[in-house]
Simulated assay, not measured.
Amino acid sequence: MDKKKLIAASAAGVMLIAVSAAVAYFTDSDTKTNVFTVGNVDLELREENFTGGQLARADIRLSKDPKVKNTGKNDEFVFLEVKVPKGEVTLLENGVPAGPKAPRELFGFYAGSSGTAVSGSDNFSYRAAVENDGWVFLSRTESSDSASYVFGYSSKISPGDETVCLFDEFALRSFIEEEVPGGSELTVPVNAYGIQADSISGVSGLPDDGSGLTVQNLKDIFDICLNKQN
Rank of each mutant, 00 (worst) to 15 (best):
F151S: 01
G115I: 15
I157G: 01
G183M: 06
G87W: 00
G53R: 03
P103E: 10
G183P: 09
L80I: 15
K86G: 02
S113N: 14
N132P: 09
V89H: 00
S146E: 11
A171K: 03
F170Y: 14
R173W: 08
T141C: 06
E131Q: 15
L172D: 00
K73R: 08
A111G: 04
D168V: 07
E105D: 13
A129R: 03
A128Y: 09
R57K: 12
N132T: 15
C165W: 06
E185V: 10
C165L: 08
N123M: 02
V68W: 00
G134T: 14
Q54T: 07
P85N: 06
V82E: 01
N94L: 10
G108W: 04
Q54H: 01
E177N: 11
A117E: 07
K101T: 15
R104M: 10
A58N: 07
D122F: 04
S63C: 04
D122A: 09
I176N: 08
S63D: 14
K64E: 03
G183N: 09
G182K: 02
A56M: 09
I176A: 12
E178C: 03
I176L: 15
E177Y: 05
E162S: 14
V68N: 00
D145P: 01
F77Q: 00
R61F: 05
S139R: 03
R104T: 13
R140A: 10
Y110F: 15
S154A: 14
E76M: 06
E88M: 14
F170W: 11
G182S: 11
Y153Q: 09
L106N: 04
F77A: 00
S114M: 12
F107A: 01
S148R: 07
G183I: 11
P97R: 12
A98P: 05
K86Y: 03
R57F: 10
K83P: 00
G95W: 09
G182F: 03
S125R: 09
T71P: 02
L172P: 00
E76Y: 01
T141R: 10
G108T: 11
F109Y: 13
E81K: 07
W135I: 12
